[in-house]
Simulated scan of single mutants.
Amino acid sequence: MKAITIFLCLLLLGCTSEPLNVRYYLLHTPLNTVNPLSDKTKPVAVLQPLKIADYLRQSSLVLQVDDHELHFSRQDVWAETLQSAFYNALLQDLNSTGQRNYLTSSAPEATVATMAIQVQLDHFHATDTSKVVSSGRYWLTANHANVSSNKMLATSAHSFYFESELTQDGYSHGVKQLRKLIGKLANQIEKDIAAVPNS
């Protein structure tokens, strides 16, 4: 009987412990400047909806702790879906290059696009070796005017892999470094589009 009483007391103490302190992280934050209306003289490119790996579809931030093992944080989570946040951040970074008007596929001006971009994100996380990594593939599809009914033709496929060192502890620093990797991807996409004939 004494053992049961001690067990119940321990159980009640466990129920009164502090709740999990959840921290939410934003990957995409708005700029503090208002962008002017799109420059009509620039070519239009459309960023198609992002495809992401299945393990990135949940809200927890991910830490790779071994070659084949991932840790999903229960208290460090994305404030919005990674698919949406990454897409919005990439669209913002592409438009900051100033070479083209990058739009969503639902934008009215998307019908006059000369280029479409499809991105597949395979990895986007921190590692236990003090790095953040981002990798995947993207496809550039050019709209050739000489093709009947404005059919879009695939022109090139590209792989990407970016990493950055972590100089501080904590997920907050990791998220800042991950955000910088999106800018590197935007720069690579822009260079590859510029290399496509008649882009």
Rank of each mutant, 00 (worst) to 15 (best):
D54T: 13
I117K: 00
L27W: 08
A194Q: 09
A89P: 00
D39R: 01
Q168C: 00
E109L: 08
R179K: 03
N95L: 04
V44M: 01
D128S: 13
T141Q: 10
P36D: 10
V34C: 09
A154M: 14
N95R: 01
F86A: 02
E165C: 02
I4F: 00
H158M: 08
S134R: 07
T127G: 07
L82C: 02
E69S: 10
L8M: 02
T5L: 13
F162C: 09
P30W: 04
L70D: 02
S38V: 13
L27Q: 06
R179G: 08
T127K: 06
H158C: 04
A145S: 15
P108K: 02
A154T: 12
G183S: 03
H125W: 15
L91C: 05
T141S: 13
Q120W: 04
N146C: 14
T29N: 08
S130L: 11
Q83M: 06
F7D: 07
L47S: 04
T111K: 10
F124Y: 14
D76Q: 14
S84R: 00
K176N: 12
T41Q: 09
S199H: 09
I4G: 01
T33M: 03
S96Y: 06
D54C: 05
N88E: 05
G136P: 13
A145L: 14
T141H: 03
C9H: 07
L26K: 12
P108A: 06
R74V: 12
L153R: 08
F162D: 05
K151H: 05
Q120I: 11
T167E: 00
A53T: 10
G14P: 01
D66E: 08
L94N: 09
H144K: 15
H125P: 07
Q168E: 01
L166C: 01
S130N: 12
T111S: 10
Q64H: 10
H173L: 08
P49M: 05
N35P: 10
A154G: 15
E163W: 06
S156E: 03
D67P: 09
L90S: 03
